[in-house]
Amino acid sequence: MRSVNNARLQARKLLDDCGLDEITDLDMDLFVAGLVVAGHDAILIEEELSNCDGKIVFGNNKAVIKVNSKIQFQERKRFVAAHEIGHLLMHRNMQLPDDTFTNFNIIEGTENTLKNGRQELEANEFASELLMPENLFLKEAKGKKFSPLLIKQLSERFKTSLTATIFRYLQFEQLHPLCLVFIENGKVKYWKKSNDLKVWLGDYTKLAPPSDSVAAEYIQKDYEFVYKLEEKAQNINKSTWFNLSEYDEDTDFYEYCIPTRRYKTILSIIWEN
């Protein structure tokens, strides 16, 4: 998608204009204050927002980026701020809605699930590249066995949420093939997989996840964390999520879930060793 590639290029250009390789160790309010160097006058504030996680207000001379102070985790606040910076650079003359949780959980190919989905996808891609630059992310992830622990280590390295980190991981064909399934209010909303993962997902869109899936366990437990880190990769059958042809063997796969109880969502990650 051309617009997605442009968003990534915009993030790299911004880093170059600011003379930075990454912003991992910078507070986001300081980074936003310094954007005047790149020709963008803005400030970032945290305040309690109703029914949204972030928003941008364009003025005649200055933009105000607002991040909901009620967000619990700093990693999520960083991504919200980076997302709004993407709007600042790419969508100044467009009518934009306030950004909600759902806006930050779309991936290429699923942006049609949201109104203004293209702009939201672009802002997400911008934020991913800004917080997790491609060259640095691949340096940290390439050649390492995929596991929940690896995603935790990457999220700590770049100060990003587990969800943002796993979405970023999926973008690179050089890394381990994955299938991601996003579940909201007990129903599969959308899914996406690596091209190298030669499987066919069952027809679960708008339906509950399979009864023998790990995702179903989390729904039954009201989105509480069922497994500890070393147990998060649970063994499942290939047929749990995927259709088998007459020539397929029902081999071992793994499923790892990231639940968000507040929003009743689950991100299910499925892979084969």
Score class of each variant (00 low, 15 high):
residue 221 K to M: 13
residue 241 W to Q: 06
residue 242 F to M: 09
residue 239 S to K: 08
residue 229 L to R: 00
residue 248 D to Y: 15
residue 230 E to M: 11
residue 223 Y to E: 04
residue 229 L to G: 02
residue 244 L to I: 01
residue 225 F to T: 09
residue 244 L to E: 00
residue 235 N to F: 06
residue 219 I to K: 15
residue 214 V to E: 10
residue 245 S to C: 14
residue 216 A to Q: 11
residue 227 Y to A: 09
residue 238 K to A: 00
residue 224 E to N: 12
residue 215 A to D: 01
residue 228 K to T: 09
residue 248 D to G: 10
residue 232 K to R: 02
residue 241 W to K: 09
residue 233 A to W: 14
residue 225 F to E: 10
residue 239 S to E: 11
residue 229 L to V: 02
residue 244 L to G: 01
residue 248 D to S: 15
residue 239 S to F: 06
residue 215 A to H: 04
residue 237 N to E: 09
residue 241 W to F: 05
residue 237 N to T: 08
residue 218 Y to M: 10
residue 216 A to Y: 13
residue 227 Y to G: 04
residue 224 E to D: 15
residue 240 T to S: 09
residue 229 L to K: 09
residue 242 F to A: 07
residue 218 Y to F: 15
residue 220 Q to M: 13
residue 237 N to Q: 03
residue 219 I to W: 14
residue 236 I to M: 12
residue 233 A to L: 08
residue 219 I to C: 14
residue 214 V to Q: 13
residue 220 Q to A: 09
residue 225 F to Q: 09
residue 247 Y to G: 07
residue 215 A to M: 07
residue 222 D to Y: 15
residue 233 A to I: 05
residue 224 E to A: 15
residue 236 I to P: 02
residue 229 L to M: 01
residue 221 K to S: 14
residue 240 T to H: 10
residue 239 S to M: 03
residue 234 Q to E: 03
residue 224 E to C: 14
residue 232 K to V: 00
residue 246 E to W: 12
residue 242 F to N: 01
residue 230 E to L: 06
residue 245 S to I: 06
residue 217 E to S: 00
residue 244 L to P: 03
residue 236 I to Y: 03
residue 221 K to G: 05
residue 227 Y to P: 00
residue 225 F to W: 12
residue 229 L to T: 00
residue 216 A to T: 12
residue 234 Q to S: 02
residue 231 E to A: 07
residue 243 N to K: 12
residue 236 I to K: 13
residue 225 F to D: 13
residue 220 Q to V: 07
residue 217 E to T: 03
residue 248 D to L: 15
residue 235 N to C: 04
residue 235 N to A: 06
residue 228 K to S: 08
residue 222 D to G: 08
residue 217 E to V: 06
residue 239 S to W: 07
residue 218 Y to I: 00
residue 225 F to V: 01
residue 237 N to R: 14
residue 219 I to F: 08
residue 226 V to M: 08
residue 238 K to S: 04
residue 215 A to P: 08
residue 216 A to C: 05
residue 229 L to H: 05
residue 242 F to K: 03
residue 230 E to I: 03
residue 218 Y to C: 04
